[in-house]
Design a protein around this nucleic acid. Structure first.
Lengths: 239, 239
DNA sequence: CGGCCTTTGTGAAGGAAGGCACAAAGCGAG
DNA sequence: CTCGCTTTGTGCCTTCCTTCACAAAGGCCG
């Protein structure tokens, strides 16, 4: 108690929860922790030690603790973290306590998968518009919403105050649609099209490249192959 | 010529092309460079300076040059890089000069999008099996192939010597299917299911989390919001 | 052939992230 | 109340990545 009262407003642990100085790498892991915490909560787990949570999230306990310490001091020494409290704090930091209206531009197979993806709705992302330039797709019902023509992009964005857009168009039209999203007021874009988008300052773009990851796997697989071959040759020489 | 002959086998620039000591961060960017190079090649560009290529790939020229220097010395000072040569070297390093048979497990909307994705075939990834546990999906034609029952997983993997598997199942069955892939001999897995997979040593897993990226965007968006609000308050105070 | 201009390749410095190890802090038993 | 056990939070060190700045190297022109 005495110590607590001695903790001034400039106490590092407290301040860290207010000012935002969270490393990029940590931000990228918070959603993983959040998912693990939700799973624990479903299993009626009340508190969890860093070791257990770290295993569930696929990271080392030290990294987990350091990450969580960026949010403030929400653990109890000798016990662990309260699952519900920690989940709420992470959600708050990530901005998931509010609803985010989102438009999806491009409703091919990928766009449909995204529109149906439960992980979006669970985290407060509400799809308020499905847009496609292809007349054949306009009017179709996807994930309970009707696909609207791309011409309505500006109207949908303005109507719902959308600031996050998802691009799932072919490569050819991605930059054009991106420009229109930005002009309409969108300031964060999740890009699934295989192009490098150029956007003005102040707009965040994150890219998900389906084939990039596969190419990285191929690199490592080839390496393993080479090692196996080398081992084989050495084995033959030894024999 | 004289200099070239003086370059021994342990010349650093040469060796780097042989021994593999490429930083992870660099490996992750090579596919981006490769895509940019292919685009340049299509536009009949013969040589490209680091500055231009860097802009096309969305990185800084210095980073690009350092990355490329890991592969060896394939640029010409005062001129730039030969587009075709460089593309070939990158493809070789990534292991894209060979064909990689791939199975896709889970043929929902996402699995279908992946099966149809041109970026796979272009890079030497050949989908040799579409597998799904849902009888309603088995027998459907997706991307020119018939969807086969999940029970045939082991047979397909063995038949084609598959070592890369793509998981696009619901969260619930991902670990089970992962275990079967590994048992059947797959040693690299691209996981789209929102779970942390556990695999034995020697197996590589890469995870693509569709909602993770959106959550990171929300974090930054919230920050921008906070800054805007703070600026607004300050502005009001000044007035 | 020689000088100039362009562009690469890379050492060195700066910064971010990861891992170790331990002190501080809480809980529960005695 | 005290002791001992458990687990967090964090300072320090190491490693990896990025950026800067410049020497070395090649082409081009006179």
């Amino acid at each position: 108690m005495t110590q607590d009262r001695n903790r001034g407003v400039d106490d590092p642990a407290r301040l860290r929860g207010i000012v935002r100085d969270i490393p990029q790498a940590t931000v990228a892991r918070l959603p993983v922790y959040l998912r693990a915490l939700h799973e624990l909560a479903e299993r009626r787990v009340g508190t969890v030690a860093s070791q257990v949570l770290a295993r569930a999230a696929g990271v080392s306990p030290a990294k987990l603790r350091k990450d969580l310490s960026c949010l403030g001091s929400y653990g109890t020494r000798g016990v662990g973290y309260d699952v519900a409290t920690l989940a709420e704090q992470i959600a708050r930091q990530l901005g998931l306590t509010q609803d985010w209206p989102v438009v999806i531009v491009g409703v091919g197979k990928l766009g449909q998968a995204l529109a149906n993806y439960a992980g979006f709705a669970d985290r407060g992302f509400r799809v308020v518009g499905l847009l496609d330039a292809d007349p054949a797709r306009v009017g179709q019902i996807v994930a309970g919403s009707v696909v609207r023509p791309a011409t309505e992009l500006e109207r949908v964005v303005a109507e719902h105050g959308v600031c996050i857009g998802v691009l799932a168009t072919p490569a050819g039209s991605a930059q054009r649609m991106c420009d229109r999203l930005v002009a309409a007021g969108v300031s964060s874009i999740l890009n699934f099209a295989p192009v490098v988008l150029s956007v003005p300052d102040g707009v965040d773009v994150r890219k998900v490249d389906l084939s990039l990851e596969l190419q990285i796997l191929a690199f490592h697989e080839q390496r393993k192959d080479a090692v196996r071959r080398a081992a084989g040759v050495l084995g033959a020489m030894r024999a």
